[in-house]
Design a protein around this nucleic acid. Structure first.
Lengths: 190, 190
DNA sequence: CTATGTCTACCTATTAGTAGGTAGACACCA
DNA sequence: TGGTGTCTACCTACTAATAGGTAGACATAG
């Protein structure tokens, strides 16, 4: 509990967005969650759009750091993909963060403030880029047998991950995430 | 314009949900779209939960009819899958219905009224069941080479479709839907 | 003294939903 | 044929609650 208030606000906002998206939470929800008045939240983040925008900057940095450390610590592209999948499998089965907030926001794309939307778009581009680079490296080492271009295979993997999150949530079965994702890696390494 | 009002309301609601989900539209939005007072919408659908619930019943019936007619008119399981994919590719590229409303609602699952949520869950079950039955039939005819059980492959296909919708929307590139989906069918028929 | 953070108290717009009434179509009965 | 009741569809006008956001007072720490 030594955490500073603005970070607590962002943490709560992230949880709330993962649960219900941009239009699914309010300043009052954050207020209730951390025991601070609505007005105090506005002191830290004047508008909702700014709050979410800052949250997405933090999220992008965390994602970048995470993917970088995966690339750095695991030399094998197979292990790199596995680590990425495992991250989400763990988040989902432990219900700690059952959904990627950028995937949540992507579904609301048409209603989002412009700069929130552009952060979301950038996240999809960055993640797609990282996956493509991992696939390309693994393909060069003949660890992967790609059906198409690395970029196209990356898009397929990313879509599978997001779709698997959705199915797990819709069916109320966290384990379905792994059931959908595991065969993807198996297919690439076959 | 010979359409009756309650159908018009449902049509507009479907479009609005496809755009922004359950919490992304209001009675006022519908009111604006069809030129009728808010109170008149309440006359047809007393509550928002009921409105969406009725919409999902209609949606389920349409989906069932659609899939049944696919099964009836196309004897070949490959063509059946292709027809399903083509349906969404066409909806997305023409921007006529750029997202499955059940996929939209699934992302908001945690905030939905109970009976709306159960309709959504049922849709995922039904669609998964249909895909599994198509895969099973095709597998028996040796048209498909399945990596796992028909049920598991069905889940993978469904997740790919939903994830592909999301990517197309997030990146603002409708054509990415087909780029993700086409290889799925290719893979199964290889 | 000033910067930072929190508070109370407010604002305006919008939310879902309600109360009560009107105009017209239809049926049935005298 | 005309009158009465009922139904559907819509309306104006309202409510309580919630949305995002603001103004200004107060406390406290450097």
């Amino acid at each position: 509990m030594t955490q500073i208030t603005s970070e607590k606000i962002l943490d709560v906002a992230q949880t709330l967005i993962a649960a219900g998206g941009y239009n699914g939470f309010s300043y009052a929800d954050i207020s209730d969650a951390i025991g601070i008045r609505k007005a105090s939240i506005h002191h830290h983040f004047p508008t909702k759009a700014q709050l979410v925008s800052v949250l997405l900057q933090r999220y992008a940095k965390q994602a970048e750091d995470g993917l970088k450390s995966v690339s750095a610590n695991l030399p094998n592209p197979i292990d790199q993909l596995q680590a990425y999948f495992d991250h989400w499998r763990s988040c989902i089965t432990k219900a700690s963060e059952p959904f990627c907030i950028c995937a949540m926001l992507a579904s609301e794309m048409e209603l989002l403030p412009e700069d929130v939307a552009s952060h979301v778009r950038r996240h999809f581009e960055n993640l797609g880029g990282w996956l493509a680079s991992v696939l390309k490296a693994g393909s060069k080492q003949e660890l992967f047998k790609l059906g198409g271009t690395p970029e196209n295979e990356a898009q397929i993997l990313m879509a599978s991950v997001h779709g698997a999150m959705l199915s797990a949530r819709a069916l109320g079965k966290p384990e379905i995430f792994a059931a959908i994702i595991a065969p993807q890696l198996a297919r690439l390494t076959a």
